[in-house]
Design a protein around this nucleic acid. Sequence first.
DNA 1: GTCATCGTTGCATCCGTATGCAACGGTCAA
DNA 2: TTGACCGTTGCATACGGATGCAACGATGAC
Lengths: 361, 361
Amino acid sequence: MSGAETAGTKRTKPITARDLARLMGVSQSAVSRAFTPGSSISPELRQRILRASQELDYQPNAIASMLSTRRSNIAGIVVSELHNPFYPTLIEKLSRSLQQAGLQSLMFNITRGSNVEEQLVALRKYNVDAVVVISATVVSGPSLRWATEGRAAVLVNRAIPEGGITTVTCNNVEGARTIANHFHEIGRHRVAYIGGLPHTSTNTERQGAFIQRIAELGMVLTHSMSAGEYSFEAGYHGALELIAKNRPDAIFFANDILAMGGMEALREVAGLRIPEDIAVAGFDDISMGHWPRFSLTTYSQPVDQLVATTVDQITRQLANPDHPVTTTQLSGELFVRHSTVAETPPEKVPRTHPQATKTVS
Amino acid sequence: MSGAETAGTKRTKPITARDLARLMGVSQSAVSRAFTPGSSISPELRQRILRASQELDYQPNAIASMLSTRRSNIAGIVVSELHNPFYPTLIEKLSRSLQQAGLQSLMFNITRGSNVEEQLVALRKYNVDAVVVISATVVSGPSLRWATEGRAAVLVNRAIPEGGITTVTCNNVEGARTIANHFHEIGRHRVAYIGGLPHTSTNTERQGAFIQRIAELGMVLTHSMSAGEYSFEAGYHGALELIAKNRPDAIFFANDILAMGGMEALREVAGLRIPEDIAVAGFDDISMGHWPRFSLTTYSQPVDQLVATTVDQITRQLANPDHPVTTTQLSGELFVRHSTVAETPPEKVPRTHPQATKTVS
DNA sequence: GTCATCGTTGCATCCGTATGCAACGGTCAA
DNA sequence: TTGACCGTTGCATACGGATGCAACGATGAC
């Protein structure tokens, strides 16, 4: 590497619309209009200007347009649980989809190390047009209202009790009931539930629906507990704790990563065979669940639809300030694999996406 | 949920510095200065203004400051491989760290579905102050130069042949040699290499160094191949392909996720015992590698230091436009686990971070 | 030929903050 | 008492584009 190079920070001032206009002998407004679809300008002049822009490497300054139009074309994505593999996938698809809708994604990480308030303040300062919250955790309802006030906002995979914010989730109730039914169908009787973060809507909905359906089916709920968070380690220790108390013949974990941790503990520490001694099911259908070692029966989250609906809602809200608050629940699908049924054909890697159920309140 | 609510898009125009100034009977510049550390204003007036801002919920408009100062305080993070668990971790820490340095992260996803050129154009349009590229893939050198021209830029975990951009990587050569040494120490003789994306610096460096060290140690390289990408599935099929040709007694996978896929294939399909029949090592030290099932021997990436160095370089470049291009290589550490040594104490979950080696060219 | 109309262009101004410069009041030394 | 000097404040303008409005030329109808 040659020694004396310098980093590229010395910013050679970029060419502006005025510069271009002067060079071409037209007005600055003409340049602006050339870049604004549907504005009053002749095709010829527009072409001339666009061509010149190419040559002179001119690009409208997005910051300046933001100031003028009061539109940032930026969507803030509030995230907290990047360690759960479900989220990176979701975020990736979401940000791509937002991009196609003309919105760049500004990420706001809410983690133990970071200051929540500061993050929310930043959301407002940066004047994001839209906010997508993908965060099972700590943002309180009121803070959220304040941060999203006056802009498009969607809560994904989470609801807040206060309501008032558009929500897109998968159908946790249906999912949990489906798992319960499945346990019933494969002849299990004594079942348990292991949840993640206690006070989140995902957890309470799945837990409540599961327990209720278990009762309806006349099965025994040996235990229902919370592992504390959504992680492999939590699932691992949760399963050990559970198994120390009693021995169910099936466990429903609130999500896949918990289930995977649980499976390891059940096999390696408790010495149980899955599914012969104990059946295990999860929720999400993350790609790791397909791995041969786990081959995890699970209720899928329709990620593509979650994303599509979210972006759709954002778009509508941006187009129409009076767009009503909606609540969308999307159905997933049960994928039966080795962790509940031994004779499942191996190495099947399904990737379909089910149809939606939509409710507008 | 109550029916007729409307989404929060109707933007009530926020109060501006001028409004506040008028209300208080001071000048707009005073308000501006109250929010600018180190500017010429008396402590009393500043306090008065800050207090009033609180009450009236005034906040400086970041967009407008950007326009004035020509500083966006935004760092663009160019990402491509979110499916490799190593990256979410890295990104999370990076964005938090950048935040502490006063930079918000704007994410630019480069994936199969997205248009690279468009993304790079956006980097310039949004006037990001800094660019961090964490992408093993497809951005060509020249495009990168163009996109980062005139701003702070760092390439993380990747080098480009052309040079000219500050680079922060872990010491791939040292890591690969360390793995080779380890194989030698545990008495293996016939070893193989399985890489990920062929034409990336991480792959070529690890491969080259490994092969060379193997030769130096007088061991046999049975095979060296590329699995095509860095994924579980690629590792899985790569291992099968490899094992069909010949039977090494140790395999070095270019990263952990590949190694984990490989382990599954070796055990479940080939019926081999790990490490008795075949030892397996990876690279990165992702948390999944600690899982009992894998307990993967690996050379760690010093994530915290990668992040710290990256942010440090960014900061310096921003402070001094003539800051030279640097190349930093950070040492990781070998973690020996079950996948190479059976009698390793179980359930050890190490989380130390090694010291650095720094080279400035 | 005259005038209304339409499409196109430029002019002027605004978006909200930052900042150089001048003005102002007070302090202190001569 | 006067003048130099410093800290503080306001004024005016710049940042780069967007846009309402007026001006202008061309067209067509009467």
